[in-house]
Design a protein around this nucleic acid. Structure first.
Lengths: 344, 344
DNA sequence: TCACATGATATAAACGTTTAACTTAGACTG
DNA sequence: CAGTCTAAGTTAAACGTTTATATCATGTGA
């Protein structure tokens, strides 16, 4: 038996396929009684809309492209782990819609730019979700120029307004800094993401302002920018711990780098809480299992993820992007006192 | 300007659309010179195949469904991190093909079963990739009954032969056990995945055989089955460390549970290398940053991932599944001696 | 009673491709 | 030279929808 189409239903009911089509999508042009008949027939024959027909006719793809910039195959470092959660959140948010998530895994920024060009010009999707936004992001520009619906995970600095979801990095760093300074820290290291990423800039600014507000000097040597892998966290600690005036606190941008920082502590024989402390933002619930557990800002990642999904739906529906901008403030989890207990 | 179609090229060259179509897909029915003309015209007008037309006509979707069983939104545990790498590997393998990855995030086994039923019956994809196989997996059965191409990440025990990629769990456990027993361990704990997963069974069997071969007794209390989260690793250690005759070695199925085991050590005041040691399989390069780094079997996850992608392509191409079965043997990385240094 | 509006349905074309079936000119065969 | 074959095209239909336009009762107003 062939899969039933609207034609099947038309024959079944003696109506035309046009009427069937209209009835099934709830057009007011068809009488309620007729609709009931059609719906009954559809149910009876087990009709399911064939998307290929719709896609060809309407030009809509019913696909949301999720661009995932993942480390290259030779790159064995533990990175991009949050993507699994991000993707599933998006997928769930689209669950009750006709849209599906089409995954575009790319190796680097240039490839993501190229992927977006393709998707936009060949209309391979109806909407796009990207992450890892830059201060001035050409991908955002392309999509805006083409009026293509999109949502970013992460803000931009220089681009025109657009839909986004992000953690409130400014507030996180400000509060982290205040808290550490209150606890007596004067030399605080900032383990920051890649320099060109938008949130690296936001965080650095917040860091400098916090220092200024406390009357502390800014030492560029205490700021490290890099890919947020454990290797990077480790290297940063190994370097900074050798300074004549080493930091007594490290604010790591994620748990991967925090784990690496611990590894650096271990290597140098530093004891957490005695020689220095580690804090982290963007906690995904790994750091509570560190030994010792550290103070973090916890981001329940399913929240921004599902929001990305809901926002892209609304954006594709034509909602202005001003309504689709959210900064989520992660929750402070104090697992450590973070005051140094120095031996006399 | 409208996007060019084969019709555009037909007008441009004065040939019929049938000839254009055949030429572009390399049919031998068209003369090389004609093909050249058509290809030149296609190039000139910037022609790109419209998949919607192809899909409607041929019934092929050019989608590979990747089923990702991810933890629920309320489930904050660190789990399923390997999916990001798995998905990008698959995506890369499909890069030069017309196929794309369609993501189906589901919350549990039942949902994955339902998703597969849908995909198979409504032909929402041309191939499926699943993971987390069970010993007797109904999803595999459904796909086999319907002659639907698929590849599994993980083997099955009771199902008919099918295409799969997996780590060689049997060998990993056997060698791990031999190595630990050689180093004097007599009470070895097995931190195993969920009981119904195929590889849990493979591992348990290998574990028992290794004990038997060494003339050691099997103690069911030293085997824990559960979702491979840090919480599970931690709980397992907390429980087993309180035994009157506690284990001196833990073999954790992944790094998440190994991290949790460390957390348990910290809680109970156990010192790694003195009181007990932790080993892990399925290393994703996190454990080298543990303090101390532990001995693992390292699985460069991009290998099986890309293999999954290549295999599904070949399977959809009709290749018999017997050619598409691979067990990958991860590489032992000895970061620790793992002999206990007990104080006298 | 006629002209006309209205509501409900039907007709037909279109989206871009593939492919079965047909045409035609020339080469080959006996 | 008639008949047959072949190579290289063409024609036309089909995939399953949506939607602009046409049709046609029926009801309305003068």
């Amino acid at each position: 038996m062939q899969r039933p189409t609207i034609k099947t239903i038309a024959q079944e009911t003696g109506l035309s396929i046009a009427t069937v089509s209209k009835a099934l999508k709830g057009s007011p042009q068809v009488r309620p009684e007729t609709r009931a008949i059609i719906e009954a027939a559809a149910e009876r024959v087990g009709y399911q809309l064939n998307m290929h027909g719709v896609q060809l006719r309407t030009g809509k793809t019913y696909q949301v492209a999720a661009i995932m910039t993942a480390p290259g195959p030779k790159q064995h470092e533990w990175e991009g782990v949050e993507y699994a959660q991000l993707l599933s959140g998006i997928s769930w948010a689209l669950e009750d819609s006709p849209y599906r998530v089409a995954l575009y895994a790319v190796r680097n920024f240039e490839e993501s730019l190229e992927a977006i060009r393709q998707i936009v010009s060949l209309k391979k999707a109806d909407g796009i979700i990207i992450s890892g936004t830059r201060a001035d992001d050409p991908r955002v520009e392309i999509m805006q120029e083409n009026d293509f619906p999109f949502v970013t995970y992460g803000t931009t600095v220089h681009n025109a307004p657009h839909a986004y979801v992000d953690a409130d990095n400014e507030q996180m760093i400000r509060k982290s800094m205040t808290r550490l300074i209150e606890r007596g820290h004067r030399r605080i290291a900032l383990i920051n993401p890649m320099q060109d990423l938008s949130y690296a800039i936001v965080r650095l600014n917040a860091y400098r302002l916090a220092l200024e507000a406390a009357g502390l000097p800014f030492d560029p040597a205490l700021v490290a920018h890099g890919r947020l892998t454990p290797a990077f966290g480790r290297e940063s600690v190994l370097t900074m711990a050798d300074f004549t005036d080493p930091p007594t606190a490290y604010i790591c941008a994620n748990e991967a780098s925090a784990l690496g920082a611990f590894s650096g502590f271990h290597e140098r024989g530093l004891v957490h809480g005695r020689d220095a402390v580690i804090n982290a933002t963007d906690d995904l619930n790994v750091s509570q299992y560190f030994a010792p557990p550290i103070t973090t800002y916890f981001l329940p990642i399913h929240e921004p993820s599902e929001m990305l999904g809901r926002y892209i739906l609304r954006r594709m529906d034509g909602e202005p992007c001003e309504n689709l901008q959210t900064l989520i403030m992660p929750k402070l989890i104090e697992r450590c006192d973070d005051r140094l207990i120095r031996q006399a």
